[in-house]
Amino acid sequence: MSIAWYLAVSAIVFSLGVVGVITRRNPLVVLLCLELMLNGANLSLVAFARMWGNGDGQILALIVMTVAACEVCIGLGMIVAIYRRHLPVDVDELRELQG
């Protein structure tokens, strides 16, 4: 398959992630949709690495996976902390930072 097909799949996955981040209200699902966006970007990085035949894109994809693991770690820690303080687990209800 040509590289363009992989790029189309990555664009679709990224857009689905954006739709999920906008529409869902459970912070757990918002984190999952962030993962979708990172995975779409990863797929295009690996596809471009294949296109040029060098490994820079693959290294960047690995670094992105590391950053995603850190983000999951912190995000889930925040959700557990929210739950323990008996606050609603809903991104529309958590508006203290909004003023």
Partner: peptide
């Protein structure tokens, strides 16, 4: 190169 199959 997008419509190709990548490098050798």
């Amino acid at each position: 190169a997008i419509s190709g199959h990548g490098a050798g």
